[in-house]
Amino acid sequence: MKTLIRNMSPRGDAAGEDLSGHPSDIPLAVHDLTVAYHRKPVIWDVDLDIPEGKLVGIVGPNGAGKSTLMKACLDLIPKTSGEVAIYGKSYRSQRRMVGYVPQRESVDWDFPVSALDVVAMGTYRQLGWLRPVGRRQKEQAMDALEQVGIGHLAKRQIRQLSGGQQQRVFLARALAQDAKVYFMDEPFAAVDAATEEAIVKLLRTLNERGKTCLVVHHDLATVSSYFDWLVLLNMRVVASGPTKEVFTAANLEKTYGGHLSLIDDALRALRNVVE
């Protein structure tokens, strides 16, 4: 009935903030989500249901709204309409379930903090207001740094790290958050091969522990080997489902439509996969 009301309502969001219609075992459910900057829609009427324990690639051309989708899910930018449920409830009440890895350029790397300080920020949620970072949080942070393979760089100021190492610091911070769903905005952007490998290993580890990871990704050649679930996005959701079913020439053409060279790249990538 609720779905019926939602479908019948003119804006599609008659259910409003009432999220009781969403099952509580689904890490991320997005319904009728539209986000607009200065009245221009960036994502339009997005519907998504992401099952638990998947490595999810979010793929689409530049300006398709991949980052916007993530930020809207995390209340970092206002939604024009629609709703997002994390395990059946609004994000506000589920913060501790969610880990966020923003794009690397989003922060000032000259900031006077060490790698360990940044990773320890992941534990602030469990600390809450006013309580200072203690030895337990530092150990947790150190542990996370070891897991991404840069424990020996803990004391360095973050400017003194390479781009790949900086990316690993961000991932270690998400690890220290100990969330159930991770949102990662282009973790593979401009990193060296060793870091890419480390990130993939980390994703697999998280996956084995039953975590759900949503990853904005660019490289079509690696999509099918990294992710078992795929969301193709170009303002709207072109397709969403198991990578094997969704990663098809027809879908890619729909996603990248008009950008001929990109389609060629995509088709080549696809052919590589088939071979």
Binding site: D75, S106, V107, D108, F111, V118, Y124
Partner: peptide, 17 residues
């Protein structure tokens, strides 16, 4: 820790509450 976090990464600061 709150001042440092919000100065360094306001986005994370918001998502952590």
């Amino acid at each position: 820790k709150e001042l440092r976090l919000s100065a360094f990464d306001p986005g994370l600061s918001d998502t952590l509450g």
